[in-house]
Design a protein around this nucleic acid. Structure first.
Lengths: 191, 191
DNA sequence: ATTTGGTTAGTTAACGTTCGCAAACATACT
DNA sequence: AGTATGTTTGCGAACGTTAACTAACCAAAT
């Protein structure tokens, strides 16, 4: 089922609202105001608030898949580094998308959405472990790498980096911070 | 101002409730039920819901300070490893305390609380950077370590580890997972 | 003529919070 | 010891607000 213009507009507004004020503060009223219509008009395009959040999750997953599609085709080490830089560029352009990184608390009261998003995150971690293994195989990374630990470090570290940038955007460009992070980590895992 | 027995009881109940259901689901009604009194009775012990959350933050900060006090006195490398193991033991004993690690989204609508908790987190990162520097100075860690990047990696990785354990406690003991994480990371940063 | 997308004016339920009153309890006086 | 008194801690009922959502209606487009 493909979404109409208004539906896209609503989902985009929800991204911004969650990003700015957190999901606790997300109300139909605010969504309607952001889009510029009355509250009931929202219900012409989505059956319920839960339905809207499902569409938000859909878009988050689609963005992740796009990212993975864009970075593949290089060496494992390059692909892995690109995963973070591509996301940092995306987030700098559309900061609202950073909520993708912190979904656990967002949908805690919606089991279905939570399961979907957590499965996606597990898959992401799995892909990064695979990239680490491929990097070992191609001779870029230390052969004694603990792939589980390093995958946690990389993803967790990046998340923390992004969240601190979001809380204090004046501290510098995310892309630059990400580059420094990768430059700091790579010597540790390269052989 | 020291807190009464009932106040402690209420704060403990709030930790559990937030940990189980998230802060969006936290209501005075549920707190009252958990403690076993009526809703208005809660207001005999706290002026407002916001007041209760402030007490929760106080306890989170107190726990952090206790942790740092307990681990100091060893070599920098040992102290740093202990920081994570001590917390993993604490979290396994009282899983509700894991919300300490993910405070950003919790208090997004309360500027004062958010600022306090974020300052505490910045301080924690700073202390870890200091421990890394001390570890370099005492010859345990690689002298070329990027302390900013490694501090992010360590804290971010641990957070991710804890959050995945919380979502699937059947996957094993947190203390054991933490030990494996440290064992995987230490060879990368040791010299 | 019916679908589409909008409106105003509700409903219902849940929220944080307050009010007035009654036990329970400690303290003080006889 | 027994009674008076004030404070603490509880309760049921209710208040004001806001949430998600619905009903009924209307205008333009297909």
């Amino acid at each position: 089922m493909q979404s109409s213009e208004r539906q896209k507009e609503i989902v985009a507004a929800v991204f911004n609202l969650i990003s700015d004020q957190g999901i606790q503060e997300l109300t139909i009223k605010k969504i309607a105001q952001a889009v510029g219509v009355s509250e009931p008009a929202i219900y012409r395009h989505f059956e319920s608030k839960s339905d809207i959040l499902a569409a938000v999750v859909d878009e988050m997953i689609a963005h992740r898949n796009t990212t993975f599609a864009r970075i593949s085709g290089n060496s494992a080490a390059t692909t892995l580094a690109s995963f973070f830089t591509v996301q940092s560029i995306l987030f700098e352009d559309l900061p609202a998308l950073t909520i993708m990184l912190f979904p656990e608390d967002l949908f805690r009261n919606d089991t279905v959405l939570l399961t979907r998003i957590m499965d996606t995150m597990k898959d992401t971690l799995g892909r990064i472990r695979e990239l680490l293994q491929a990097g070992i195989d191609e001779g870029s990374f230390r052969p004694d790498l603990d792939r589980d630990a390093v995958a946690l470090m990389l993803v967790g570290g990046f998340r923390l980096l992004v969240s601190s940038w979001r809380l204090d955007p004046a501290s510098g460009r995310l892309k630059e911070k990400t580059r420094r992070f990768i430059d700091g980590v790579w010597p540790l895992i390269s052989r």
